[in-house]
Amino acid sequence: MLYRSFFPRDLYADMDRLQREMQQALDLSPNIRGLARGFPALNIGGTAKSVEIYAFAPGIDPASLEVQIEKGVLTVAGERKDDEMAEKAAVHINERYAGRFRRVVALPDDVDANACEAQYRDGVLHISIPRSESAQPRRIAIH
């Protein structure tokens, strides 16, 4: 086994996990961009009034996050530090992402980039971009 001693792992749980991950990869991401996952993971949704983007980036100083909108393209970039290590420490499991990251999303045409709001809470960066006034549905009065 790869991981030894302090956390002996349950073989069935491992097989279960493998099966679940394959299932999730097939089920939940029928995506033109393929199955590759980056860091941070992104969830994107929208309402009639706004576009909502959630970036799952735990353990980051919000001040070090760079969020940029340029020509209708949103970029989220930053760096995640590796764990502090004591001297003579041994790493048994290392699955968490560390290093620089950058993700880019093309926004729809009808958003108002100037009114974008971003907040970081519980390790999730939530970016909310309102759709521009002119794109809102309007009722036209008939005289």
Partner: peptide
């Protein structure tokens, strides 16, 4: 995802639970 690091005094476990 987790990191598990062992030093002389014990074990440190980090787990990412965003949201």
């Amino acid at each position: 995802p987790v990191d598990v690091i062992e030093d002389a005094g014990g074990i440190t476990l980090y787990a990412d639970l965003p949201g």
